[in-house]
């Protein structure tokens, strides 16, 4: 069974739990003693990931770190429909890769602001917030135009991809880092669409949405 080195309050770990839940793949959580032990920075854990970061997965001896890389692996291996990481469609695949890189930016701005505010991490809060607004503006416009073309997800096509998972918590938890989504109505609609996916699971701080109408 897949082992996920995990911490409940980490957005990057949550992305894995979310995809695993949506794909209905069983896994075992290994809870990292983040505080006060800083276990992920310790020598034992660095044997697993020398960078000292979570999440890490161990899939029957195959060890992989980096949140977005793990999403790619899980979707490629465990999604029989091939739609979450669309390797057979070069154009969509390119878009997915592009938005996954974009998500590195939202993680380093929006989610970093949140860590600063809630766990007192040492980041430049104002720079993180301004950076997040720059990216959200681009993403909101993109999603608005997607809607105009009858598209619901960040990459084109009928169904969501790992890029939606990679972006989702950075956006959905942004207010916790002092980043209002007042100016991004298309982003607010998209986060609700993600929340209505079958198999969706919550993370603390994400407000529940009502069911879609029958």
């Amino acid at each position: 069974m897949i082992k996920l080195y995990d911490y409940l309050l980490s957005v990057n770990c949550y992305k894995q739990r979310l995809l695993l839940s949506i794909l209905d793949v069983p896994y075992e959580r290994v809870d990292i003693d983040f505080y006060p032990g800083w276990e992920h920075k310790g020598a034992e854990f660095r044997k697993i990931n020398p960078l000292g970061h979570i999440p890490v997965i161990d899939d029957d001896g195959y060890v992989l770190w980096d949140a977005h890389a793990i999403l790619v692996y899980l979707a490629s291996k465990y999604d029989p429909t091939g739609s979450w990481y669309p390797v057979s469609d070069p154009r969509r695949l390119g878009e997915v890769a592009s938005w996954m890189l974009f998500a590195e930016g939202t993680t380093n701005t929006a989610s970093a602001a949140r860590l600063h505010v809630s766990l007192d991490y040492d980041f430049d809060l104002e720079a993180c917030q301004a950076g997040a607004h720059r990216l959200f503006r681009v993403l909101d416009e993109h999603l608005w135009f997607q809607e105009q073309q009858g598209q619901e997800w960040v990459a084109s096509g009928e169904s969501p991809t790992v890029a939606d998972i990679a972006l989702f918590p950075d956006v959905a938890l942004s207010e916790d880092g002092g980043i209002s989504r007042l100016d991004y109505p298309a982003l607010r609609r998209w986060t609700e669409r993600v929340q209505r996916l079958p198999g969706f699971i919550d993370m603390p701080g994400i407000f529940p949405v009502a069911k879609a109408p029958a």
């Binding site: 911490y7 309050l9 003693d33 032990g37 938890l173 603390p204």
Partner: peptide, 19 residues
């Protein structure tokens, strides 16, 4: 009970309240 588990319990609880 361990310090790590119980701290996580409280931190997750706080993150539900803070928003």
């Amino acid at each position: 009970a361990t310090v790590e588990d119980y701290a996580e319990y409280q931190l997750v609880t706080n993150s539900e309240d803070i928003v």
